[in-house]
Amino acid sequence: MEATVALIAEHFNGALSPTFFELITFANKLKIVTQAKPTIVMLGEEIEEVANKATHFNGFDVIAIEVPGLASYNPETYKAVLKSFLEELKPSFVCLVQTSTGADLAPALSVKLGAACISSVQEISSESGRITFLRSVLGGKAQAVFSAMTDITVVSIQPGCFERADTGACSGNVNVSRRAYRSLRIQDLGVRPGPGCDLLLSEAKVIISAGRGIRQKQNLALLFELAAMFSRSAVGCTRPLSDSGWLNSGSQVGLSGAIVSPDLYVACGISGAQQHIAGMQGSGFVVAINTDHYAPIFNHSDVCVVCDVIEFAPELIKAIAKYRQVT
C-alpha cells in the first residue's frame, strides 16, 4: 500500500490559516524524501468551500470531515474525530503547524496513535534513508536534529521556517464525508480578539526593542530616548516584559505578539528565543546589544555589540547625535 502523509489544515471563518501554505511547503520537502503521498485533512461544519480552496496550487487531495456543530476548534472533538480517522488512514506522518491549535493537538494525537512526536521543526533532511528534523532547544542556544523510531511520526513545524512556494499543480480531489461527534467535556465559547498590535509598532521604520537585559522598568526611558533619535520609531519588547506589565501587550514582538519588519531593529538586552526571532526576522537591518556573548539573538543580527545596553545606550545616543548634526 502506498504510504500517506496526513496534513492537518487549520481554517477559521471560512479562510485557510496563513500558516497552511508553510505546511504545504514542508509537505513537498517531505514528499521528496519519503515518496509518500500527502493528503490534506480538515474538520469543521460547512467545510466544503474552504476544502476546495485548500487544494489550489498544490495538487494534493483533500479529505474534509464535516462535523455538525463544530464551528471552531474544540480540542475534544478534534482529537476524537482525528484519532478514528487517522487509525483508518494509517499515515506514516501526521503533520501540523506549531500554532496554538497544532501545539494543542500534536502531543495528544501522538499518544493516541502510538507515534513519536517532534515539535517546532525548522528543517527536514534525509541521510541514507533516515529522515531527520532540526529544531531549536534551550531558547535557541542550541539546535538538535531528531529522528523518530516509530512507524508513525507526528511532526509540527515552526511557523515562519517554510516559505510559501506554490507548485502550480492542478487541484486534487476533494472528498467530503460526515462524522458526528458531540463534545461532552469541553464547551467551546469562541474567540475573543487580542489587544492587537500597537499601531506605532506595526508602522514603525525603526524599532528599539527591550528584553530582560534592561533589568529595571525605569531603564525603559533610555530606550525611548534612543527611539526619539529616529523618525517613525517605536519601542517594542519581549514577552517577559509585557507579562510583567512594563509595556503594554500591544508592544510585544514575537509569535504571540506582533510580527514586524522595520528597516532597523535594535534588540536591547534580548536573548533571542525562537518565538521572538520569528517575530522580527523580516527586519531590514538588525543590531543586537547583549552582555551574553552566546545570546542566540547575535546569530540573527547584522551587528553585535557585546555589552550592557544600559551603559551603551547613552553612548549611542551621543554618537548618533553627532551624525545628525553633520547632516
Partner: peptide
C-alpha cells in the same frame, strides 16, 4: 520514540559583525 542524532550551536542567519573597542568606540562605529 524519538532520539537526538546531533546537537550543535545554532547557525547564523545574518553576518553577526562583532564590534570591538571601548563603549564609545563601539557606539561611534555603530
Amino acid at each position: 520514540r524519538e532520539r537526538p542524532e546531533l546537537i550543535r550551536h545554532p547557525s547564523k542567519s545574518r553576518q553577526s559583525l562583532i564590534l570591538e573597542g571601548t563603549l564609545s568606540e563601539k557606539a561611534l562605529e555603530l
